[in-house]
């Protein structure tokens, strides 16, 4: 017998005959577990939690403002004004803001990566990004600076809400769903938290659609 058959036989033997016959039904219903209370102002909570996890958060009225916000952010930190963005954001006037931005997947030495976000999760201040042809996963990963543009109206309360939206809008999961909560970090050396491990050293979240305090 194959390893598969042996393992399944051992499990099957230990399991009672009727136990778990509803497993497919459980999956079809995918019931939610207990949800923590989160308050009403989701965008505010999202911004606060993201800040707590060391993301920088900037609210703005429209998508058109994003290139200038990014340019200012990089200049203030004396970071190179160049990098890559998702093809879905290629239409913005990066050049007009003095930025040299290519629309493609990231290489190892791109200083800045600019992405959108499928949604933001208020509970933990987390970005949810889906991989795809127009939304390559490397852009949020390889550069030392990650800028994510989130639409305020798309911020949801919990990861459960995000799954429901994903099922509704996409039907199935993309190759990679990446939840991002601040710059990469490590505490492996003497349990001392250090920002910037293998991923970005800093994350700027631009919330489009007005102040997140409103």
């Amino acid at each position: 017998m194959s390893a598969r058959e042996n393992i399944l036989a051992r499990i099957g033997k230990a399991r009672g005959p009727g136990v778990g016959v509803d497993s497919d039904d459980v999956i079809r219903r995918h019931p939610r577990g207990p949800i923590p209370p989160l308050g009403n102002n989701l965008a505010k909570r999202f911004g606060e939690q993201a800040t707590r996890l060391a993301s920088d958060v900037a609210p703005t009225a429209t998508l058109m403002d994003v290139p200038k916000i990014v340019a200012d952010y990089l200049r203030e930190r004396q970071l190179p004004p160049k990098g890559v963005c998702w093809p879905s954001l290629a239409a913005l006037d990066w050049q007009g803001a003095g930025l040299e931005i290519e629309s493609r997947a990231a290489h190892g030495d791109d200083p800045v990566g600019i992405t959108g976000a499928f949604t933001g999760i208020a509970e933990t201040g987390t970005l949810m990004l889906l991989s795809g042809a127009q939304t390559p996963a490397t852009v949020s990963l390889l550069p030392e600076t990650h800028v994510a543009v989130v639409e305020k109206v798309r911020i949801v309360a919990t990861m459960e809400d995000a799954w429901d939206r994903l099922r509704r809008e996409h039907g199935k999961l993309p190759r990679a769903v990446n939840f991002i909560s601040g710059p990469s970090r490590t505490a492996d050396i003497e349990q001392t938290v250090t920002l910037g491990a293998h991923g970005p050293y800093r994350v700027l979240i631009v919330i489009v659609g007005g102040s997140w305090n409103e």
């Binding site: 939690q49 996890l53 390559p136 990679a176 769903v177 990446n178 939840f179």
Partner: peptide, 20 residues
């Protein structure tokens, strides 16, 4: 409250995708 990254990986790179 959450780790920096939570990655949910399903299947292989799509035909038109540039990474993965």
């Amino acid at each position: 409250s959450i780790t920096n990254y939570v990655s949910v990986l399903t299947g292989t790179r799509g035909k038109d995708e540039s990474d993965g």
